[in-house]
Simulated scan of single mutants.
Amino acid sequence: MRKTKIVPWTKEWDRLYMIEAEILGEIFEHEIINIFHIGSTSVQAIGYAKPIIDILIVVENISNIDIYNDRMSDFEYEVRDENGITGRRYFVKGKEKRTHHVHIFQIGNESINKHLHFKNYLIHHPQEAKKYGDLKIALGKEFPNNTYQYQKGKEAFVNELMVQALNWQENYLSRNHRL
């Protein structure tokens, strides 16, 4: 069973993202529209995270991604297909000691904006990000041997943050992009 390990934020995660983004860019070179570092390792203000780099890739056609499964396996990624989220292709690297999660969506999928708005909200609201980091630490201590319970413990807080993030982003866009 995987352990829930929460560690202090480090700039090293940005470097690890850049290295992996370059590799993924070579693998999916003809498919990628954009690539982003997401998740807690991408937001310094959270302060703490599991040391797993989450990467979001936007592509033109999601069905083309399946032909790259063997190539991803060559780079030690485990293919997880949609893994519970319709329209996503999901890959994990590192087996029991995960290092990377790759989430691939077709352009226009609502999950893209959810991930990016959530990150943007936490960057612009460091007090909320800190609360999230504090929750991660508490849950990591409470459930060090049960990642499922750790994730379940975050669910209500993350869902509330997501609502706030989407509302904030909508207001931000309407204030700053008037015609």
Results as ranks from 00 to 15, higher is better:
Ile32Ser: 09
Leu166Met: 11
Arg2Tyr: 09
Ala21Trp: 04
His125Asn: 15
Ile137Thr: 03
Leu135Asp: 07
Val58Asp: 08
Ala156Pro: 00
Ile55Lys: 06
Ile123Glu: 13
Gly108Ser: 05
Tyr148Asn: 06
Tyr77Glu: 11
Glu155Pro: 02
Thr147Ser: 05
His115Ala: 10
Glu82Gln: 15
Asp66Val: 14
Lys95Glu: 11
Leu16Gln: 09
Ser111Cys: 05
Asn171Val: 05
Ile55Arg: 01
Ser42Thr: 08
Arg71Gly: 00
Phe118Gly: 06
Ala129Trp: 04
Lys152Arg: 08
Gly87His: 08
Met18Ala: 10
Leu116Val: 13
Asp81Ala: 02
Asn171Ile: 10
Ile46Asp: 02
Tyr148Val: 13
Ala165Met: 01
Lys11Phe: 08
Gly47Leu: 02
Ala21Thr: 08
His124Gly: 00
Tyr17Val: 10
His100Ser: 03
Ala156Phe: 11
Ser63Pro: 01
Ile123His: 09
Gly133Ile: 07
Ile85Ala: 01
Asp66Cys: 02
Trp9Arg: 00
Trp13Cys: 13
Lys154Ser: 12
Tyr17Gly: 06
Thr10Arg: 15
Thr4Asn: 08
Ser174Ala: 07
Ile53Asn: 02
Ser111Val: 04
Asp54Asn: 09
Ile57Arg: 00
Ile137Gln: 09
Tyr150Trp: 07
Glu170Pro: 00
Gln149Ile: 01
Ile55Asp: 00
Asp70Leu: 05
Ile19Thr: 11
Met18Gln: 13
Asn159Phe: 11
Phe143Tyr: 15
Ile23Ala: 07
Gly94Asn: 04
Leu16Asp: 11
Arg80Ile: 01
Gln44Leu: 12
Phe75Ala: 02
Pro126Phe: 05
His100Cys: 05
Glu26Cys: 08
Asn167Glu: 06
Asn159Ser: 15
Glu110Pro: 09
Tyr148Met: 12
Asn167Tyr: 03
Glu110Ala: 14
Met18Asp: 12
Lys11His: 09
Lys5Trp: 01
Lys130Cys: 06
Val163Trp: 06
Ile112Cys: 06
Leu173Trp: 10
Gly25Thr: 13
Ala49Gln: 03
Val163Arg: 15
Pro51Glu: 15
Phe143Lys: 14
Tyr172Leu: 14
Phe36Gly: 03
Phe91Lys: 03
Lys141Val: 05
Tyr48Leu: 13
Val7Asn: 06
Pro144Ile: 02
Val58Pro: 05
